[in-house]
Design a protein around this nucleic acid. Sequence first.
DNA 1: CTAGAACCTGACGTTGACGTGAAGGTCAAG
DNA 2: CTTGACCTTCACGTCAACGTCAGGTTCTAG
Lengths: 147, 147
Amino acid sequence: MRIGELADRAGVSTRALRYYEEQGLLASERTASGQRVYAEAAVERVQLIQQLFTAGLPSRTIVRLLPYIDAGHATPESFELLAAERDRITTAMTELAAARDALDRMIHIANHPTPEHCPALREPAWAPYVEAGADSTPVDEAAAVTV
Amino acid sequence: MRIGELADRAGVSTRALRYYEEQGLLASERTASGQRVYAEAAVERVQLIQQLFTAGLPSRTIVRLLPYIDAGHATPESFELLAAERDRITTAMTELAAARDALDRMIHIANHPTPEHCPALREPAWAPYVEAGADSTPVDEAAAVTV
DNA sequence: CTAGAACCTGACGTTGACGTGAAGGTCAAG
DNA sequence: CTTGACCTTCACGTCAACGTCAGGTTCTAG
């Protein structure tokens, strides 16, 4: 499979694929004339890379993870890396949930313009999402998030 | 309150606050000598702005939302904007969950290096997270996400 | 054999939310 | 009055994942 087909099947641009190779994320065979040739498995690999990018992992980190993914096992160091990134993602999800809650409050007020919302009385739609006035608000129990 | 105190209390840099003002996200009074002066409410407002940035909203969008937030009500257009951004966030959360699941599979394999994982037999840790071979995988029911 | 699609390697442009000086005015304390 | 923390505007630098153009080569269908 050449680069154009891989790009189509994986849903990315050819530029992205060359970039992945440049970053050491994706290898390729070459024909005698220098054109890139990929195996079938490359499709899933590109999709994984995309998923990790979407999750906010930078290419430097992905490059460090891929060898262990390929090997099917991990060293303690790489395990820590995996766990740290997992935590980062969890934190990001919690923050997204908080922002969405803020938007939900705005939407609620937008849909229920009652007299209670007159400027003098209403609580601002943008009040902090955790109100119980503890000074240091720990990120709290990551609540169960339902979509 | 001057810019330094606001920066401390809101947990951002003074540069960020000037940037917010430049983008029309945050207003300020000025002293005779030109120094910025903020009200108490600015702390929460900055935190809201930060939350929306974290959620991936660009400043252009935030700028369009803030008037309605301040007013405590919204027009149909702004409601659509709110709803669209809410959807974006939900999608982002779903994608994060998928990426985290992928990492979890890697972590699982890292912790259970059994003979089943010999290269010839194992399913790759990086297989797509939805396998049931439907061609077009709709984003599915956004599953309940537990942190 | 030839047109055009697809590929190659550079290399510069884009975007967003700031960081980081530069060069200078302002303000409370000793 | 001077020191040093804080403030002002202006303006270029950063970082990441590509987009995009240029100029040339290779493959493939008719």
